[in-house]
Amino acid sequence: MSYARKSRILLLRVLREPEHAQALSIARWSELVATARDANLLGALAERLASAGVHACAPAQLHLQGVQQLGERQHLSIRWEAHQLQAALSALDIPVVLLKGSAYVMAYPEIGRGRLFGDVDILVPRAALGDVESRLMLHGWASAKSDAYDQRYYREWMHELPPMSHVRRGTVLDVHHNILPLTSRNAPNPATIIARSQPLAGLPALRVPCPEDLLVHCLTHLLHDGELNNGLRDLHDADLMLRRFAAEPGFWARLQSVATGNDLAAPVALGLRLLERLFGTPMPQTLAAELESSFGAKPWTRWLGSYETALLEPFAGRASLRAAIARQLIYVRSHSLRMPLGLLARHLARKAWMKRRSATAEAEQG
């Protein structure tokens, strides 16, 4: 087993059993902090250790305290942005559903505690996109994509508008009308997610997904996205959700129904398998198998080893050949899930040409 893989396994063990960190040497603390930072889990590690009363060595403690302060500032910013969205969009009288990290911060702080992120994601009805974009622009948000092809790519094929950035605060907002691209093989119905969403206290225009949709979206995003830099972080989010929501009566049956009914049984089944293997997440033993039986397991379960290999090595620095191959295969597969082959080939060719043209222009200016 490689040193890098052992470091990630150590991180997972400490997240599950923080008391294990008490016996670490200064060198191992340094390794643990660096690994957690690479996985974007340093904030989660800091909160887990603090809640268990485990104190790090002095150098490591400085990093942990620093990331806790950063997390507090980010969460305060998210709460402020939620109030700004309420002010900007309440006049439209439509449901505005917070997604992913912003939903955790606003509705489930025990899940969001220690989580670091860089943008806010919302889901709105597709028919209201024009009005939503106009209202946001009036309140200071502007499109962060100026290229005409990028604008067309997002508006015709993707599940969201081009990212928007606030002209004064610099915060980034992703406005979704679905949770997967319109060209994706899977076809979730966003109307059902909105219909099942729950009101957010004190902010009448805003809502959050129901627990089952929150989890399904987390796993779907991870397993349809070719970039796995935040893969362990997303799995950690899912682990916390399952441990939190499992106590609610009927949760497991509803989770199976939501995943199957919204054409997302495959990514959820694979995500549950990964959670069992990497986090030891408790769940009904038959759940993943029942989800797999609804779509035929072989095309997805054969990817379990590839994801495990890709996730258990750091992204900073040099990955092993095995991990590099696994990540490349996952990257290609994720794009094949998002687009038909013909459209994908044209898109990648266009982006490669644009990248080369940009590099040539920079070289000529230099």
Rank of each mutant, 00 (worst) to 15 (best):
A289G: 05
A91Q: 15
R243W: 04
E19N: 10
A191F: 07
P18W: 02
I193W: 02
L76W: 07
G71L: 00
L10K: 11
Q74K: 12
A107K: 07
A195H: 15
S25L: 05
L200C: 02
Q22T: 14
E227A: 11
R126L: 13
S102N: 04
G202K: 10
V54I: 11
W141C: 03
E292S: 14
L278I: 05
A21K: 08
L123W: 04
T220G: 04
D213A: 11
A259P: 02
R126P: 06
N186A: 13
H217E: 02
L24K: 01
A363T: 03
A56R: 08
A297M: 04
L41K: 06
A288R: 01
L129H: 08
H335T: 09
L228C: 07
V208C: 14
L99E: 00
F279R: 09
L200A: 03
A127E: 15
A361C: 02
L182M: 09
A148F: 11
A44I: 09
D213Q: 04
G271N: 03
D150V: 05
R346Y: 12
T286E: 10
S77T: 08
G317M: 09
Y307N: 01
R273A: 03
T360N: 15
A34R: 14
E19R: 14
S334C: 11
L41H: 06
I193Y: 01
G112C: 03
L344N: 09
L123I: 07
Y154L: 12
L116R: 13
H55S: 15
E160T: 06
S90W: 07
V14C: 07
R244H: 11
S30P: 02
A205T: 05
N189K: 09
A349P: 00
P282T: 07
A144N: 13
R327T: 09
C210R: 03
V172Q: 13
N230W: 00
G101H: 08
L272E: 03
